[in-house]
Nucleic acid binder design. Structure first.
Lengths: 255, 255
DNA sequence: AAGTGGTCTAGACCACATG
DNA sequence: ATGTGGTCTAGACCACTTA
């Protein structure tokens, strides 16, 4: 059952991508669209909120909505699964577990994951047959058994955990910065020591807010980039900062 | 005039931050909140959308909303102004123009900025008396005169342009990755050549979708981090990717 | 002055979660 | 079975942009 506002958003998105509404042009008014789609104005507004969140259109009180762009793609929601992202974009990808061991949680980890014992897994993932990502993931104790049962060459941990124990990675918090490659990072990723890596630290929770994992992912420079769109005013697209630990002289930009 | 849903969101946010609704706990139902605030359910839902976008609460059909976090801060919307971000967070900051010159637009620039002649400005910005950011900004021809009139030590270009010509940087698109410092970058930022820099490329437009500037900002590693929250399902927090050029073997994660 | 998006109401029905 | 959030309607008023 697809919601009506989703279908309206889909149709308008298609029109924008097809060029029926060029970038910079005005969209029809909400009243016109409501008439055209036989929907209430509120439903049309819900559809427009979707397009605004995608960065396709912008709005301001009193003036018609404007087309801001015509590119469309996967959502950041898939970001916590490397495999799903790579597959959706048609890339060849692979991965292998380097090490996997249980150990007591550090102070910060036990606070973040609400867990005394954790499972630390180091995975190396490749894109188009080149190593691009080193994933150092720490799982909360309650998911450790399910993770250990996974085959070593498991393509998508996210999907496998959903199928085995119905686990959904619902919310995530991400901290993105740049770090130099350490000796081990450099060896595994095939770069020189000290060369730039794009680091993404994240904490993931279930729908209920229960912490699942905390991860430190490092990408070889030049292999991936993160994309964000923002706007001021209009929709409350405001997001918010995290409680991952920062260095003493490190500051944070928030999204 | 503050909207009712904003006041409701403010009050619930305060309660969450104060600990009245601990992380992991359920919020009152929409009906209860509607009764408490004397508002319609739709208004309460609008308030909840604000909190969800801030990453404070999560929701799923059929179950009560859950508190996901209790940290609150500035929005990503301020990200396009280094000065505003630094001031809001109470940091000492400064900046100076290194070079400023007009030149013909390259092919990519004329497409991005819809402009044949551009103004390129190189600025070095400091935080807590240390150089942290090298900003290489290319302005569209139509804003060049206003930018050139700014004093060299101008703290906030964004604010100054708003006051001088009423210009609002309304929408932005950002691409974030890591790059090694070049010789010049290294000298200005006081780091070794080849050391990691966090790069943020962006294109900014007005409310009307008119391109204003395109910028390549490089932060010293360890000085700043970007923070993002995401969720699946529920609200359409989905955003979307850009048309900034990527390298031949570079891929993109989108938000 | 007219048109447009932003806010708000009061109701309805449905899909889903939970006991 | 009950309660919850998700969707949708039909109308109203206001703030703002535009001409």
């Amino acid at each position: 059952m697809v919601a009506r506002y989703e279908r309206i958003a889909d149709e308008l998105r298609s029109e924008i991508i097809a060029g029926a509404h060029p970038v910079g042009s005005q969209l029809p008014s909400e009243a016109e669209l409501a008439g055209r789609f036989g929907a209430a104005r509120g439903t049309v507004r819900q559809a427009m909120a979707v397009l605004a969140a995608e960065g396709l259109v912008g709005s301001r009180q009193g003036a018609r909505r404007i087309v801001l762009g015509r590119t469309r793609s996967q959502s950041f929601a898939e970001l916590h699964s490397f495999a799903q992202w790579a597959r959706a974009n048609g890339y060849r990808f692979g991965g292998q577990v380097i090490t996997s061991r249980r150990r007591p949680a550090s102070g910060a980890e036990s606070a973040r994951l609400a867990s005394e014992e954790v499972l630390e897994v180091l995975r190396l993932r490749s894109l188009e047959d080149e190593p691009v990502l080193l994933e150092r993931t720490v799982y909360a104790g309650w998911v450790a058994p399910a993770v250990e049962r996974l085959p070593a060459g498991c393509e998508s941990v996210t999907e496998a955990l959903y199928e085995s124990i119905g686990l959904v990675f619902a919310y995530g918090e991400h901290l993105i910065d740049a770090v130099p490659a350490g000796t081990r990072d450099a060896g595994l990723l095939g770069v020189r020591r000290g060369s730039p890596l794009l680091r993404q630290r994240r904490v993931t929770t279930t729908h209920e807010g229960r912490p699942v994992e905390s991860s430190d992912d490092r990408y070889r420079a030049g292999s991936v980039a993160f994309s964000i769109r923002n706007s001021i005013g209009a929709n409350p697209l405001v997001r918010q900062a995290g409680d991952l630990r920062l260095g003493p002289r490190e500051h944070m930009f928030e999204s």
